[in-house]
Structure formats: structure tokens, C-alpha cells
Design a protein around this nucleic acid. Structure first.
Lengths: 152, 152
DNA sequence: CTTTGACCTCAATATAGGTTGAGGTTCTAG
DNA sequence: CTAGAACCTCAACCTATATTGAGGTCAAAG
């Protein structure tokens, strides 16, 4: 019934425990592992066990995702963390600082779009040749074809 | 060489022309048609021809996408346009007004995240139990598992 | 010792939003 | 009339982010 492993290390988390505490599903944790975002050691019985860093790491992943950072980039950023010692506050802060810039850019882009939409609601011009929404001045038009899941 | 159809109706656009003018690829227009976002008439030779409304319609679709509206919702909104007459400025304004609310919510959510990230950069607390980023007060935590491509 | 729940791997499926290619037709310029 | 550009359909493929299921193992409680 209990999800906690009762083995030698009471601080190590099983995937079920981690999933519950981190607010993600077990399959998501497996998925993150295949993508190199998290790692685990194994028990004699081949079950995953996670150390004390893991909760913070998963939390960082979810926050970065909310900020619109794709998993591949998150992985690269996490790979840049010091491997030998436990990352400290400054290490994490460095990561989030980098992501904040992207987040701010996204907010700016959306706000710009909103302002233009405001104007176009007033004039009903949407799609007229001089409407800023039709020929946005930003770099979006330069992005090539391809799946663009986030608004860039 | 010319992409313009030289048939009876010089105002009708071929897919290539529409693609060029709307700034999307031909395959995207085909795709939109299968999804019910746009429609076309056909020549005797089974080639698509588009009327004068189409440019505005495609423009509206792209703007709504930038605002984070999924194609299915855009389709539903477009379906609600008057079918019998050419939609006027007020019709289009009604659409964009609805999408603006969602866009504003998205901006608010991201701005909130940014503000929290600001605080957490200062304290380096990311993943500590009292960090607002770990237990966001908004409704994101209530969303079940599943692909969440946009930040909701 | 048996049962049950948590765990394992691997493959298939799902969604959104398209792109690419094969194989064939149409249109227009020279 | 013929070459080549543009068009057609349909199916397969692509990325990102997971979820679901099949088939089997492990561990702890009764």
C-alpha cells in the first residue's frame, strides 16, 4: 500500500513517490528519463530510486516548460549544471535568468499582438492592407515553415 | 510561369497565388481546407479557385494562431460567421474580441510567472517548499495530465 | 505462500499542425 | 505540339509531449 521504499536509504524516492510529490505522472518521469532530463539509480530489483536533488530538478523542468522552453533546451541547460557537486542557489538562478529573457520576449510579442488587436477591433480592419496585424513588423514572418507550437 | 489564372474570373485566386499573398505554403492551404477552415470552388480542370473573402479569412486565421487559438476553435468561430452575406467589419471585430480575452489571459499568466521568476532569481529558492513557482495559485495544477502545448 | 499493488520494458497510440513525396493531370508559353 | 510549371489526391512522415497497454517482475502484507 505504501509507496515509500523501506530499503536501506529512506531518503531515496521511488518513481511513484516522486510522481506524487512532483505532481507529474509516472509515465512522464519515464519519458523525461529517456530524454535525458533526469537520471536514476536502480535497486537490486531494477527499480528506480531518486536522490534528494530530484524534486528541485523536476520543479525546474516544469517551471521552464510553463515559460515556454522546449524540453530539449531544458535538457541542455540542465546538462550545463555542475555535475560534481550539488547545484546551489546561484546555479539554479543562472538557469532561470536565461529562461526569463525568453519569457519576456514572449510576453512582449503577445502584448504587441494584443495592442494591435485592440486597434483592429476599433477599426474592423483586420486583413486590410495597412493593418499591422497582416504584416507584423517582428521576426515571425522570417521563421521558415514547420511546426511552430509556441508563438515564438 | 505566371501563377495567375487567366480564365474567366480574373479576381479569383489559384492556390499558388493565395499562398504567395497570404504568406503560407500551398500545403498549408490544403491542410486548412481538410480541417474546414477555408473552402474553394473548382475550375473545369479541378483546380481550386478562391474568392475575394479568402485573403481576409486566412489573415484572421494566422492572427488567431499567433494569439494561441487552436485551429479547431478558429474553425468553430469562423463557422459562426454569417454564411449568406460577406462578413463585415463588425463580424470580424466580434471574432477578434473573443480571442483577445484568451490572449489577455495568456499574457497575464505569463507575466505572473515572470514576476515569480524575478523573485526566485533573487532568492535562489526555486523548488523550495514555499516558492510560489512550485505551487502556483492558478488553475494550472488542476489540469490533468496530457499534452499541454501552450501554457494555458 | 499467495495475493496485490507498484514496478519494469517496449511498442503503439494520441494530438496539433503541418511537410514531403509518389504518381498523375492541367495549363500556358514558346 | 510539346516542355515544364503548377496543379491534383492520397498516404506517409515529422516534431513535441506525452499516455496507454501488453506482458512480465518485484515486494510487502496477510
Amino acid at each position: 500500500m505504501s509507496m515509500a521504499p523501506s530499503g536501506k536509504n529512506p531518503h531515496a524516492l521511488s518513481v511513484g513517490e516522486l510522481a506524487a510529490r512532483a505532481g507529474v505522472s509516472v509515465s512522464t518521469l519515464h519519458f523525461y528519463e529517456t530524454k535525458g532530463l533526469i537520471a536514476s539509480s536502480r535497486t537490486d530489483g531494477n527499480q528506480r530510486r531518486y536522490g534528494r536533488d530530484i524534486l528541485r530538478r523536476v520543479a525546474v523542468i516544469r517551471v521552464a516548460q510553463r515559460a515556454g522552453v522546449p524540453l530539449a533546451e531544458i535538457r541542455d541547460a540542465l546538462d550545463a549544471l555542475p555535475a560534481r557537486r550539488t547545484p546551489n542557489g546561484a546555479d539554479w538562478a543562472k538557469l532561470s535568468a536565461g529562461w526569463k529573457a525568453g519569457l519576456e520576449a514572449r510576453i512582449t510579442s503577445l502584448t504587441c499582438l494584443k495592442d494591435q488587436l485592440d486597434g483592429c477591433i476599433g477599426c474592423g480592419c483586420l486583413s486590410l492592407s495597412d493593418c499591422p496585424l497582416r504584416n507584423p513588423g517582428d521576426t515571425l514572418a522570417e521563421e521558415g515553415p514547420g511546426a511552430r507550437l509556441l508563438e515564438g
